[in-house]
Nucleic acid binder design. Structure first.
Length: 426
RNA sequence: GGAGAAAUGGCAGAGCGGUCGAAUGCGUUAGUCUUGAAAACUAAAGAUGUGCAAGCAUCCGGGGGUUCGAAUCCCUCUUUCUCCGCCA
């Protein structure tokens, strides 16, 4: 969540940044500040009473030790009224505090000033593109046909076992998954990321800390008996490694990568969006996460974008990068670049990666700080993450863009050693 | 799953109703000594909130209770350890 101190320090700037999302920043900021002011007043009142009580208790203790029993009993009688006031003040404080927390939970991150205002994906800005868009003519098959004919993926079998959106990968199809995961992990390792393997169910605290709760409650699968959530992305468990920690400045940056399956309920999706591999309930993804010094976060964002660019280019897939507009960004993000791959048979762009800087929005909830060497104070770190990469749409693009005459699929050179073949022939 | 024990500062570990934000040891940082290092000696150092500050408040696994007063007593949840059972 946003830091009150930062809002106080620069309320106009934060308000303007919130405007980029299409919400009334000025109004929101004013409301937060007014509730916070109320909170501090109530806190002061409450602590005053507590201090009184502490003094009285100490005095009573002294009297008892001095053997002045009667005087002590007299003072004891005084405490009842204060106790009552404390109870009231504490109740009031809790109420104001909850009000403030609810409001902050309901307030998205303030976009970086370089983010464009806008309402929806229509307002996103293409900032980079690479590769040639292949023209396969009219005989191009969509990936679901290829996957079926080549026996790579069995969607119907997944429906039987679980339901729609839970495909079964078979034979070379399964091996291709494993090849991509290994390729992505190795590339991340070469870029200095430490590999971790983390739980794919998380508790409520973790889901809250990275911002999935309360904002996206309905998008996660929830194991109600144990109150665990199936992760929608490795971002959740990996970032939560740093929950409640104070790092040394020289430990930064922390660079982690992890492969996990991801689970999304995708309530409300329909039509061509969910065809084949376009949108699944369970899919595989390699994530990169960085925890960095606040001064470095936007350099690191560029560095992470660069990492993903290299992946796309090694996979020989045409892609473009969009700078998301304020209205299309995730709730917790301050700046997000989306990568989209060209799907040659569907003739449309598919999102395969989202690289975001969260500034201190996540770390404030995580309570992840570092000791600033100059000031000696603990400050919130900045967190970033990105997909590097999500598998299904990469597979879709690989199958569609690389289809050759004679039922063959060309495998990009970088992937060949992982898959152990230059072409898939079927 | 059953029975028992435990959870305290970076780590180990004392405290079991007031003088405890908390002994002691290790570790950390700074200094003295030394050409330098080690050793020895001296000193410093928790977190959060609030306040210009002095200070005040809160924090001894989480939540609740008893009491004028709780790290210490009670309830409850979670976690860890030991033993038994089950098991990839």
């Amino acid at each position: 969540m946003l830091q009150i101190a930062k809002i106080k320090e620069n309320s106009e700037g934060i308000a303007q940044r919130l405007d980029l999302r299409g919400i009334n920043g000025k109004e929101r900021v004013a409301k937060i500040l007014s509730i916070d002011e109320k909170r501090r007043a109530v806190q002061h009142k409450k602590e005053e009473l507590l201090a009184q009580m502490n003094q009285l208790s100490a005095a009573i203790g002294d009297l008892f030790k001095a053997g002045k029993r009667e005087e002590a009993d007299l003072k004891k009688a005084e405490t009842a009224a204060i106790k009552e006031s404390i109870k009231l003040a504490e109740g009031e404080y809790k109420q104001v505090e909850n009000e403030l927390t609810d409001l902050l939970n309901d307030t998205p991150n303030a976009p970086h000033s370089s983010v464009q205002p806008g309402q929806s994906e229509k307002d996103n800005v293409e900032v980079f593109s690479w590769g040639e868009i292949p023209d396969l003519g009219t005989k191009a098959k969509p990936h679901w046909e290829i996957a079926s004919e080549a026996a790579l993926i069995d969607f119907e079998l997944g429906v039987k076992i679980t339901g729609a959106g839970f495909p079964v990968y078979t034979g070379v199809g399964a091996k291709l998954q494993r090849a991509l995961i290994n390729f992505f992990l190795n590339e991340a390792g070469a870029s200095g990321y430490t590999e971790v393997q983390v739980p794919i169910m998380v508790n409520e605290d973790s889901a809250y800390a990275t911002g999935q709760l309360p904002d996206k409650e309905g998008q996660m699968y929830h194991a109600a008996v144990d109150d665990f959530y199936m992760i929608p992305t490795a971002e959740v468990p990996v970032t939560n490694i740093f929950r409640d920690t104070i790092l040394k400045e020289e430990e930064l940056p922390k660079k982690l990568t992890g492969y996990t399956p991801c689970f999304r309920r995708e309530a409300g999706s329909y039509g061509k969006d969910v065809r084949g591999l376009n949108r699944l309930h369970q899919f595989d993804k390699v994530e990169i996460v960085q925890v960095v010094h606040p001064d470095k976060s936007y350099d690191v964002l560029d560095e992470m974008v660069e990492h993903v660019k290299v992946l796309m280019e090694k996979l020989e897939l045409p892609y473009r990068i969009l700078l998301l507009c304020g209205g299309d960004m995730g709730f917790t993000s301050a700046k997000t670049f989306d990568f989209e791959v060209w799907s040659a048979a569907q003739k449309r762009w598919l999102e395969v990666s989202s690289v975001s800087c969260f500034e201190s929005y996540q770390s404030n909830r995580l309570k992840c700080r570092f000791k600033n060497k100059e000031t000696g104070k603990n400050e919130l770190v900045h967190t970033l993450n990105g997909s590097a990469l999500a598998l299904p749409r990469i597979v879709a693009a690989l199958l569609e863009n690389n289809q050759l005459d004679g039922n063959r699929i060309h495998i990009p050179k970088a992937l060949q050693p992982y898959l152990g073949m230059e072409e898939i022939v079927y």
